[in-house]
Design a protein around this nucleic acid. Structure first.
Length: 416
DNA sequence: CACTAGTGCAA
DNA sequence: TATTGCACTAGTG
C-alpha cells in the first residue's frame, strides 16, 4: 500500500500527520469526557413535561390525535385539514421543514406548537436520552469514536455518539453543552481558531484587502459588508453584516447565485449582484477561484496547503450541474482541507508537549476548528500558553492564525 | 432487519 | 441548485 501512497504523492502527509495522529486520537478516545448526569436529568424532566403539554395542545388545535414526529401526518394536518399555504414539495409530498413552518407561522396557532415540539423532541431524543446511556461503566465517562478515514476533505468525524454536533445555538442547547464537565480538580479549556477558513482564503489568494482586514483585527464580516455594500462602517446595520456573513460562507462553500439566494431568501438576480460586487472588490479571490478550478480540471484533483488531495472527477462532467458541483468541491476543499491539515498538526504537537512536559492535561475533543482540553487547575496558565503557541505555530499563514481561548467549569462556560 | 426520506444538530 | 459530517423518527418491504 505504501507504494500506492507514494504514487499519489501522499507519503509525507501520511508519515508526518496521519500516522502520528492515530496515537493522539486513540488517547482521546480512551480519555473520554465527563458528563454531569444530574444536570442532564434536570433538563430532561423539564422537557418531558413541556413536550406532553405541547402534544395535548396540538391534538386540541387539530381536533384529532396524530404523530407529531411524522412529516406525512403533520403535512396532512397542516395542508389538507387546516388548508394552510403549502411551500416546497419533496418526493413524497409537501415539506414541513423549519423554513416552511416559519413562513406559515401566523396562519394558525398550531404551527408554533409544532415548531416548539420539534425543537424539544430533537434535543430529548438525540442528546438528553441517548448520551447518559452511553456512559462507560468502567470509568463513568463518555467515549466517542474518531473516524480518520471518512470525510473526503481530511476532516475527522465522530460517531456513536457524534460529539461534534452537540447543540450550542439555542438557550436550551447551551444547557445541554453545560452538562459536559471536567473531572474534580480540573477545568475545561476550549481553544478555537478564529475565522480560520477565511484566513486561509486570504493567504492562498493573497488578496490585500482581506489580509489587511485581518492584520488590523477588523471584524471580517463587517469589513466584507463595507466593501460589497459600499457603505461606511458606521452606517452598517446588523442586517448588512448578516448579508456579508452569508456571502463569506458562500465563498468558502464555492458560491452559486442560486445557493446564496436560497439562504438570504432573496431573488437570484440580487444574489448574483452581491457575488459580482464581491468578486470585483476582492479580485485576487476571483483569480484564486479560477486558478483552483483550472488546476482541478487539469490534474483531476484539488490540493490543500499540506499537499492533501481531493479527486474531483465531477469537474469534467458534461452535465452542467455535475460540473458546477465539481467546481464547488475543488474550491471548498482548499479551505476545508487545509483547516483539517493545520488542526491535525497542532493536535500532534500539543499531545507531544503535554507528555514531554509532564502535564496532567489531556486533549478530549476536536470539533473541526476547536480543541477541548481537560486541565488540572494548577496547570491552567501554562497549558493555555502551550496550546495557543502550538495552534498558532502549526502553519505560518499571512495573515497569521488567531486563536481564542476560554476556560470554564463546563464546555458552555469555556466557550463564552 | 435493511433501507429511504425528511428533518435537524455541529463546524 | 452553497461544504463536510451523524443520527433521529416514520415508513416501506
Amino acid at each position: 500500500m505504501l507504494e500506492r501512497v507514494r504514487e499519489r504523492g501522499a507519503e509525507e502527509l501520511y508519515r508526518t500527520i496521519e500516522l502520528p495522529l492515530t496515537a493522539v486520537l486513540a488517547a482521546m478516545e480512551d480519555a473520554g469526557v465527563k458528563i454531569d448526569t444530574y444536570r442532564m436529568g434536570e433538563i430532561t424532566a423539564r422537557l418531558a413535561d413541556r413536550l406532553e403539554e405541547l402534544e395535548a395542545k396540538a391534538y386540541e388545535l387539530a381536533d384529532e390525535e396524530f404523530m407529531l414526529g411524522s412529516t406525512q401526518q403533520v403535512a396532512r394536518i397542516l395542508f389538507e385539514k387546516l388548508q394552510l399555504t403549502p411551500g416546497r414539495k419533496g418526493k413524497t409530498g409537501y415539506s414541513t421543514d423549519t423554513r416552511v413552518l416559519r413562513t406559515i407561522r401566523h396562519e394558525h396557532e398550531i404551527v408554533e406548537v409544532i415548531e416548539e415540539w420539534r425543537e424539544y423532541a430533537k434535543l430529548l431524543n438525540t442528546y438528553l436520552q441517548p448520551l447518559p446511556s452511553l456512559i462507560s461503566a468502567e470509568d463513568g465517562r463518555l467515549h466517542t469514536h474518531f473516524n480518520q478515514t471518512v470525510a473526503s476533505t481530511g476532516r475527522l468525524s465522530t460517531s456513536n455518539p457524534n460529539l461534534q454536533a452537540i447543540p450550542i445555538r439555542t438557550e436550551l442547547g447551551k444547557e445541554i453543552r453545560s452538562a459536559f464537565v471536567p473531572e474534580t480538580g480540573y477545568r475545561l479549556l476550549s481553544a478555537d481558531y478564529s475565522q480560520i477558513e477565511l484566513r486561509i482564503l486570504a493567504h492562498v489568494s493573497g488578496e490585500p484587502k482581506l489580509r489587511e482586514a485581518f492584520a488590523r483585527g477588523d471584524d471580517i464580516h463587517t469589513a466584507t459588508a463595507v466593501e460589497v455594500l459600499g457603505k461606511d462602517a458606521a452606517q452598517l446595520t446588523s442586517g448588512d453584516r448578516s448579508i456579508a456573513k452569508m456571502i463569506n460562507f458562500g465563498i468558502v462553500y464555492g458560491i452559486s447565485a442560486f445557493g446564496l439566494s436560497e439562504n438570504l431568501e432573496i431573488p437570484r438576480e440580487e444574489a448574483q449582484a452581491y457575488i459580482d460586487a464581491y468578486l470585483a472588490r476582492f479580485p485576487l479571490v476571483q483569480d484564486f477561484i479560477q486558478r483552483t478550478i483550472e488546476q482541478a480540471k487539469r490534474d483531476g484533483y484539488a490540493t490543500s496547503l499540506l499537499g492533501r488531495r481531493r479527486p474531483t472527477p465531477e469537474i469534467r462532467a458534461s452535465n452542467r450541474q455535475t460540473r458546477s458541483l465539481g467546481e464547488r468541491l475543488a474550491v471548498n476543499f482548499v479551505m476545508q482541507g487545509s483547516n483539517a491539515d493545520i488542526i491535525k498538526k497542532a493536535m500532534i504537537a500539543i499531545h507531544r508537549r503535554l507528555r514531554d512536559e509532564g502535564r496532567g492535561a489531556r486533549l478530549v475533543l476536536q470539533v473541526h476548528d476547536e480543541l477541548l482540553v481537560e486541565v488540572p487547575e494548577a496547570e491552567v496558565g501554562p497549558v493555555k500558553q502551550l496550546v495557543r503557541e502550538e495552534m498558532c505555530r502549526a502553519y505560518p499563514l499571512d495573515p497569521p492564525l488567531a486563536v481564542e481561548i476560554g476556560v470554564g467549569d463546563d464546555w458552555s462556560e469555556a466557550k463564552a
